[in-house]
């Protein structure tokens, strides 16, 4: 490489690494803001801001879904397998909503420590399987 090209190479490397470091530090500083949601333990421990709209994510606790008889109101527990919290929501839940499904709820904590959600999203994971395999896995889990 000629000295001129070498110089240009170094300038470009410096440019890429410089922006990389700048962006990296910015994101490190904004770390908590980039997270889409708080975990239920963070909310229960008071790490999440109170009285403002936040998102909480966790798995729907088994046998915790209680539906109101005369309205669309539904309440359920969600947990990150640490500390669970109770969520109350009025509206139509996404198709994937079920027990032990990961969900993200947006809303506010009320005075009784119940999370009043105005939006519930289902979180899907990267595991896909055909229905037959899911069925046989369920059976296996039941017999063991």
């Amino acid at each position: 490489m000629t000295p001129k090209r070498k110089k240009r190479l170094y300038i470009i490397l410096a440019l890429v690494f410089g922006t990389g470091i700048a962006v990296g530090l910015t994101m490190y500083a904004l770390n908590q803001n980039i997270n889409l949601f708080y975990s239920t333990s963070q909310v229960a421990d008071g790490e999440a801001p109170v009285g403002t709209r936040i998102r909480v994510g966790g798995m729907v606790v088994k046998n915790s879904i209680k539906r109101s008889k005369d309205s669309l109101q539904v309440s359920f527990g969600i947990t990150d397998y640490g500390k669970p919290i109770t969520v109350s929501f009025t509206g139509i839940l996404p198709d994937l909503f079920r027990e032990e499904q990961g969900i993200i709820a947006q809303g506010k904590m009320d005075n009784q420590g119940i999370f009043q959600a105005d939006e519930v999203l289902a979180k899907h994971d990267e595991n896909y399987m055909p229905p037959e395999i899911a069925e046989s896995m369920k059976k296996k889990a039941g017999t063991e």
Binding site: L36, L93, P94, L96, V120, L121, A122, K123, H124
Partner: peptide
């Protein structure tokens, strides 16, 4: 259909 939202930030 899956999450319940078109777009999330």
């Amino acid at each position: 259909p899956t999450w319940g939202a078109w777009w999330v930030w």
